[in-house]
């Protein structure tokens, strides 16, 4: 298995979500498994596919501040993608080449992140179902879908996310924290810069190295067909209220 690596690119929320889908369709049709790194411009909020946009996100405030909001095709929770505050990845591969069990596949890919963080002096661990934590605080959230024989997992690693701004845009539900006995949601989240005096590029380089370690891989780009499909999906699906406010 030879992996295509698409190095760090910056796009808006709609294209980022559309690109992951377009590549997944392409992998289903025979393209090489792909690891992609990306950032978001402008900053954006993404919600899980089973969440309600109006319940989770202060969309009026987002509009006021020029922040995009988009529904993902993966489950999981709402995430604030701070333009310069995180690195996002996606792993797109045939299901048959990844662990069959959902938790096992989270554990595998999250292991790549944990290994990457260890190279920059951050000791992290996997917190099932889909989180990575440092000293009990979440530093990375991950979400996975499996369709047409393809596993797509994407996730973020927080670098210097403005947590106060994050929680001013997200309507975090106190019920979510009820079994954790933690008062403040801000006490549950942390970022790489708190533990290691590195640049965002250092974090990205560590992730690139950790994700590709031991793999047969090459640096590639999205094909013309993938770009075209992604642009179409961004316009017709991910920018649409029909999709974003469907639940």
């Amino acid at each position: 298995m030879r992996w295509r690596i698409i190095e760090l690119e910056t796009h808006d929320a709609y294209f980022n979500m559309a690109a992951d889908q377009a590549i997944a369709e392409s992998v289903a049709a025979g393209a090489d498994p792909t690891i992609r790194f990306y950032k978001w411009h402008p900053s954006a909020v993404s919600i899980g596919c089973f969440q309600s946009m109006n319940d989770e996100v202060d969309t009026a405030k987002c509009r006021e501040e020029g922040i995009d909001f988009v529904r993902r095709r993966t489950g999981g929770g709402a995430v604030f993608h701070d333009e310069n505050g995180e690195v996002t990845y996606s792993v797109i591969a045939l299901e048959q080449d990844m662990p069959k069990g959902v938790i096992d596949s989270y554990r595998l890919i999250c292991g790549w992140i944990i290994d990457s963080l260890s190279t920059i002096g951050i000791t992290a661990s996997f917190a099932p179902i889909n989180d990575i934590v440092v000293s009990g605080k979440k530093i990375s959230g991950n979400a996975q879908t499996r369709r047409d024989g393809v596993l797509l997992q994407h996730g973020t690693v927080l670098y210097d996310t403005n947590l106060t701004r994050m929680f001013s845009l997200l309507k975090v539900d106190n019920a979510k924290l009820s079994d954790k006995a933690i008062r403040s949601v801000e006490e549950r989240v942390t970022k790489a810069l708190d533990y290691s005096k590195i640049s965002q590029d250092d974090l990205y380089r560590a992730l690139l190295s950790g994700f590709t370690k031991g793999k047969d891989s090459y640096t590639g780009k999205m094909t013309e067909a993938e770009m075209k499909r992604a642009e179409s999906l961004a316009d017709k699906v991910y920018k649409s209220d029909d999709w974003n406010f469907s639940r």
Binding site: F50, G75, I129
Partner: peptide, 30 residues
């Protein structure tokens, strides 16, 4: 417990007329 947040919104009279199952869980296929 040990899982995700689940929110149910329902409209009902004698019968359940509409229901939305919401939250940060996962279902495959979605």
């Amino acid at each position: 417990p040990g899982g995700k947040l689940l929110i149910i919104k329902v409209r009902y009279n004698e019968n359940i007329e509409d229901i939305k199952i919401l939250g940060d869980f996962f279902i495959y296929p979605e």
